[in-house]
Design a protein around this nucleic acid. Sequence first.
RNA 1: CGGGAGAUGUCAGAGUGGUCGAAUGUGCCGGUCUUGAAAACCGGUGAGGGUUAUACCUCCGGGAGUUCGAAUCUCCCUCUCCCGGCCA
Length: 416
Amino acid sequence: MIDLKYLQKNFDEASAKFIKKGVDAQTLVRLEELFVTLKSANATLEEAKAEQNKMSKLFGEYMREKKDVSELKAKVDAKKEEIVGLQEVAREAQEALEKVALAMPNLPDDSVPEGKDEEENVELRKVLEPRTFDFEPKEHWALAELNGWIEFDRGVKLAKSRFAVLRGEAARMERALINFFLDVNREKGFEEVYVPFINNATMLQGTGQLPKFEDDLFKIEGEDLYLIPTAEVPLTNLYNDEILTQKELPILLTGYTPCFRKEAGSAGRDTRGMIRQHQFDKVEMVAITTPEQSEAIFKMMVENASDILTRLELPHRVVELCGGDLGFSAAMTIDLEVWLPGQNKYREISSISNTREFQARRAKIRYKEGKKNVLVNTLNGSALAVGRTLVAIMENYQNEDGTISIPEVLKPYMGL
RNA sequence: CGGGAGAUGUCAGAGUGGUCGAAUGUGCCGGUCUUGAAAACCGGUGAGGGUUAUACCUCCGGGAGUUCGAAUCUCCCUCUCCCGGCCA
């Protein structure tokens, strides 16, 4: 959630920033109006309540002094009726504001490059040279079939399209990758956490998936519960509605979870293979920091994810997202894209974002700075997406006969 | 899933219709004392909104109701603990 007071006081500045993220001015004007309306409705209501409270206290005095209360009662009753109406006005104003405000994306940082979509993202650097093949490298689904690693059709049978089954060595590599990622993250100071894979609506709203992206989530029928689309949800909301001490910050967390996404809007893209599935594994990093700490932690998280790819000897590049490509909650995002020789392009394998106070305001995560309660900064990033790493290993480590070599760092994890 | 008890500030725990945002203890922060620490003593200390700052409003698990007035009474829901059932 954005800071409505900031919006009101610095309207022009805020709208300039929002334009970078593709929010139209009309919506902003409306939002500001709703905020002003709510404030005045509340002021009127509270004034009436103050009068009523005062009269009720008087009532007690009258009773004690055995004075006649019938006149006072009549006045209070009239005031009560007035309050009912005012309350309704205030409630409606509140709902109208929330509806718009909760659907409003985060403001991008000043440093974020201008741009409409992913075409205008900025490559910061490349890490490791892509290997040269003396044969035509295959795409991962072809390799999956040759090696009996992935069964797409049986996954579809068990659930529906975009579910897959990993078999044998592939299943073991999936598990090995999870352990490897968690170990590296732990080395870097992240605490390993195991969380529920099902969270309630309040938590999903805290991190920004609800109410706007309900269609992308798998909901449990008849319950106020959803399958998590990323570990960012449970890890960040671990501290939902809490006030932390400054001493305990920064909090660095890592956890493995499967992720469940409907991605209704993605039909037609990456329909083949493992790139876009309804269920996938991911190891996530989450940081809860003071505003002063978050820049440095953000860099560290990017370095860490890049380091993991380097240890796996997977060529990749570091890309800064432009304003138009930023996600809903992010103030800035850096993606890591891994080289896929079969597809002959770089594909996203990690996304690291600083949401600043955006999620903290929604999830009410604060820390004590002296006497004051201050919103934390929350950051999240993949380290890494497991399924896509498997794909990258398949394509980068393929041999001419279609077999796949195992990366050195994974061998101990696979008992080799 | 069945039976019983409960949900109050960091925690523990009082409060059963008004003067209670809430005793007391504890924790935490600041101070005195001390070479330093501990102990002792003194002071401060819930959250959100609102205001330049006060006023003022809301919150005692959540929601609805009774009442001039609710932490306190009624109803519904959720959660926790104990007993039983079932179970990895």
